[in-house]
């Protein structure tokens, strides 16, 4: 029988069978993934997330926002008209973990930065239906109460620096967070919203308002529409 070679060579030899399986399942991944490390990303014009934005991003990940929101605008007219410039690879240079998403239960957030005032985000997180009637998003009212821990974000910044994010060695995480947060609470105060700068909602607003802003500056003139 023709298949005897398979029986004699492999089906009686578990070690060889396992070794061959390992080789066969490794090829595809190696061919596809390895080249990704050989292409340097041009990060000119892509700013490193500030400590407050890191804090906001950690909250975005914690709440599982990626389960309902993508951050990936496809190069199609229906997408660029609705959301803005399509997404480029270098815009994700400091995304750890990546948050492209896989299902849009809500809209894409790649270029949500600057789309709405800070106060809109505050109200939207407190009660999504107050700003978006018909929305099925859960309320995130605890973000208005819970505080960001500076030491916790210091640990994040340290880890990200080790991984290659170019934070200056003398970066004062606490001061940086206070400065950016106070600017946001100041703008919120203009809309009659009083909130302490150390609340999680402030970090989330900082993160969302920075989403896609660099890419918009870099690529808006490219004219993809």
């Amino acid at each position: 029988m023709e298949s005897n070679w398979h029986r004699n060579l492999l089906e009686h030899r578990s070690g060889l069978f396992a070794a061959l399986t390992t080789v066969v399942i490794s090829i595809g991944g190696l061919v596809e993934i390895a080249p990704m490390f050989s292409v340097p990303l041009d990060t000119t014009g892509i700013t490193v997330p500030t400590p407050l934005e890191v804090a906001g991003r950690d909250i975005y990940v914690r709440e599982g926002c990626y389960n309902c929101h993508s951050q990936m605008i496809r190069p199609m007219r229906a997408e660029t008209v609705r959301y803005g410039e399509w997404s480029r690879a270098n815009e994700y240079a400091y995304d750890r973990p990546f948050q492209l998403g896989s299902r849009r239960i809500g809209p894409d957030l790649m270029r949500v930065g600057g789309k709405y005032p800070d106060a809109w985000h505050y109200e939207h997180m407190r009660d999504p239906r107050s700003t978006s009637p018909g929305s099925i998003m859960p309320p995130y009212s605890w973000l208005l109460e819970d505080k960001v821990d500076v030491a916790d974000i210091q640990a994040s910044v340290n880890a990200l620096r080790t991984l290659g994010h170019p934070y200056p060695a003398d970066l004062d995480v606490g001061a940086s967070m206070r400065e950016q947060a106070t600017a946001i609470t100041g703008r919120l105060a203009e809309s009659k919203i009083t909130v302490d700068p150390d609340r999680e909602i402030v970090a989330v607003i900082a993160y969302l308002q920075n989403l896609g802003v660099d890419g918009k500056k870099l690529y808006a003139t490219a004219g993809s529409q």
Binding site: I33, Y92, R96, F98
Partner: peptide, 15 residues
């Protein structure tokens, strides 16, 4: 909490 050694599109492809 941890951060992946890969970032952006590389992290997406590995994932």
């Amino acid at each position: 909490r941890s951060y992946p050694v890969y970032s952006g599109m590389t992290d997406a492809l590995v994932q």
